[in-house]
Simulated assay, not measured.
Amino acid sequence: MTVFAHFDRKEDLLLDRIPGALDVVRDAVRERPDDVGGAGEAIRRTVFALVDERHPLSGLTEGTEPSLRTVTASPALLSRLRTFAYEVETELSAALDADPRFPGDSALTAALLVAAYRTVAVETARRRLVGDDPAEIEAAHRERLEAAFEVLTGGLPGRSRPPRDA
């Protein structure tokens, strides 16, 4: 009973960063300085700050391979991570909805940001588990994040717009 006073699910014992991640996402949008352009830029800055400090949410913390192996071997933990992604998406969407400076579709924006980050994080975890060089993993992680945010803020590369009918 004592454990469940602190964790809603037994899976959260291992995935204890979930509540903190929700706070990080919410705070990135709500507490961004006026000189930071949009919410996407605020999220980008937050993500790269996590990478710079090798925060556990960055996926670059040294020694996480045993936990990664446990998570990838457990259908229940993988399911919890999918639920977690939805929780982050929902939290981000709510923060965007509450932001008078955000003019766009909050649900779509949140879904795209979360999907992009998840894609980068999954590849980083995969590379860690096969034993790739940590410096190369970090460089690729940063490059993929930059590419993801470039797409999210500037559109798909090589995309041409069809002509509009008059």
Rank of each mutant, 00 (worst) to 15 (best):
I43F: 05
S160V: 15
G63F: 11
R127A: 11
A125P: 03
R161A: 14
A98F: 03
D12G: 08
D27M: 10
P66Y: 01
A148T: 04
T70S: 14
A76C: 00
L152M: 12
V122N: 10
M1S: 13
I43H: 00
R142N: 05
G40S: 08
P100M: 08
A76Y: 02
F149V: 05
G37I: 05
R54F: 07
L145K: 03
L145H: 15
I18F: 13
V120P: 00
R144L: 04
A49V: 02
E31M: 11
I43T: 01
E89Y: 00
R80Q: 08
A49C: 05
S67M: 15
T90I: 03
T2L: 14
V47I: 15
E62N: 01
A73V: 04
T90L: 11
A21T: 09
S74G: 07
P75G: 03
E65I: 06
A42W: 02
T109Y: 07
T83G: 13
P66T: 06
A139L: 09
P162M: 08
R26W: 07
E62T: 12
T153L: 13
R26E: 14
E87Q: 14
E41F: 05
A110S: 13
V36M: 06
L108V: 12
E31G: 10
L129W: 00
P100Q: 06
V36Q: 06
A5L: 09
T61V: 12
E136L: 13
G104Q: 09
H141T: 15
P19I: 01
E146D: 13
R45H: 02
T72Y: 08
F7E: 02
G59Y: 04
A98G: 13
A28Q: 02
S58Q: 05
A21R: 09
L78W: 01
G20R: 09
R26M: 02
A95H: 05
G40F: 06
Y117H: 10
P19T: 02
V88H: 00
G104W: 08
P157T: 12
L152S: 01
A125F: 11
R159Y: 15
H141C: 13
R82H: 10
T2R: 12
P19R: 06
S67Q: 11
A39P: 14
A107F: 03
R126W: 07
P56N: 03
A121V: 08
D52A: 15
L81F: 09
T90D: 13
E146P: 00
R69Q: 10
V130L: 07
T124A: 12
P75C: 00
G63V: 14
S160R: 15
R164Q: 14
V47Y: 05
D8Q: 12
P103L: 06
I43L: 15
P103S: 13
L81D: 06
R80S: 05
R82E: 11
L81G: 10
S106R: 14
V47S: 09
T119R: 10
T119E: 05
R32G: 03
D99L: 07
A76L: 14
A42V: 06
V120L: 01
L108K: 09
G131D: 01
R164I: 07
V71Q: 02
D165E: 11
T64L: 12
S74W: 06
R127F: 04
V51I: 14
T2D: 10
V88R: 01
D132S: 13
V24W: 08
P19E: 01
